[in-house]
């Protein structure tokens, strides 16, 4: 077990290291000079050069890479070229929008998907199942940003129930801030819920076919109890795996949704930074997202190892 997890951990770390090389190398190819961009069309050549020196852009590639990776180990992601504040500070300011948004969407999609999936599995092949699965089929096909546009139109422009975009900040109080996140999280959650509902349904159907369920039924346990207490618990593993994967996806999915709702989250920051060639910010965010996904995958591996003892010795 320890050896297995040790190996997974090592692989995770190696992935991060290779990812850092890839990210750094790719972004260094990016054309465009952040110094020139900052000073604009009328700037003189020596003013641009002076700023390049100030930003540390005139140093060699390797020293810059080493300094960057070294810094990240102590959570120092460097200083933003344009904002000239520590990158980690920028990320923190934006993460307090993106992370709650991703978590809200995950909660919402779970809250929709599990009941629908269980409901459909319990009524397999009947009209209710067909309707639920047709709806989920549709949900999978809807682009979340288009759904977001419709939500804005109906709930913000027509009914004026919630703001159409923007974020008042947590300092404005929890409710106004959460209100600004309602539509974005619905837009993100619904297509994800459609996928999760299908996974839940098929995982349940698999379990329902197994012997211990038949035994439970034969013992005369009520249908509902069998379904919720026995079957669902055993079907949770694939569902949890998908949820784990979805968290990474949701964090990334916020990129487009944040643009629809002009939320000041990580997604907007990454777009802004790409346009301003504030590469060190882009590099920091990408590495953080990659690290999150690697960590979530590790947790999924860990949960598998705990549930399925065969894995502990198999590898």
């Amino acid at each position: 077990m320890t050896a297995y997890l040790g190996k997974r951990l090592l692989i995770g770390l190696a992935t991060l290291l290779v990812a850092s090389v890839v990210v750094f190398a790719i972004l260094e190819i990016l054309p465009g000079d952040p110094a020139r961009l900052m000073l604009g069309m009328n700037a003189t050549a020596d003013a641009v050069e002076a700023l390049r020196n100030e930003m540390g852009l005139n140093e060699g590639l390797l020293p810059r890479y080493l300094a960057w990776v070294g810094g990240m180990l102590s959570l120092d992601f460097g200083r933003s070229y344009t904002y000239s504040v520590p990158v980690i500070e920028l990320i923190r300011e934006r993460a307090i929008v993106s992370v709650p948004l991703a978590l809200m969407s995950l909660a919402l999609s779970t809250a929709i998907a599990i009941p629908v999936g269980v409901f459909a599995a319990a009524r397999r092949g009947r009209p209710a199942d067909t309707v639920a699965m047709a709806a989920s089929q549709l949900g999978v096909a809807v682009p979340n940003f288009w759904f977001a546009l419709l939500l804005v139109y109906v709930f913000a422009v027509w009914l004026r129930l919630v703001p159409a975009g923007g974020f008042p900040g947590w300092s404005a109080g929890a409710w106004p801030a959460l209100k600004a996140l309602i539509l974005p999280s619905i837009a993100l959650a619904v297509p994800q819920a459609a996928i999760l509902a299908r996974v839940t349904r098929s995982a349940l159907l698999d379990v329902l076919g197994e012997d211990f369920i038949r035994t439970a039924r034969a013992k005369g346990l009520p249908r509902g109890a069998v379904l919720w207490r026995h079957a669902l618990r055993n079907a949770m593993l694939p569902v949890l795996t998908i949820m784990g994967l979805q968290f990474g996806f949701l964090l990334a999915g916020t990129i487009i949704i944040e643009n629809v709702f002009s939320l000041p989250g990580l997604g907007r920051l990454i777009f802004q930074a790409l346009n301003q060639r504030d590469l060190i910010v882009v590099e920091g965010i990408v590495m953080l997202l990659v690290a999150t996904i690697v960590a979530v995958n590790l947790l999924v591996d860990l949960s598998y190892a705990i549930v399925d003892p065969r894995l502990r010795t198999a590898r």
């Binding site: 990812a19 972004l27 996904i293 690697v294």
Partner: peptide, 22 residues
């Protein structure tokens, strides 16, 4: 398998945005 791990560690959308931006 390790190559797969690496690619899957990047959120696809994010990487697509980076690639097209570059």
């Amino acid at each position: 398998m390790r190559f797969n791990d690496l690619v899957f560690a990047f959120p696809a959308l994010l990487s697509a945005i980076m690639i097209t931006a570059i």
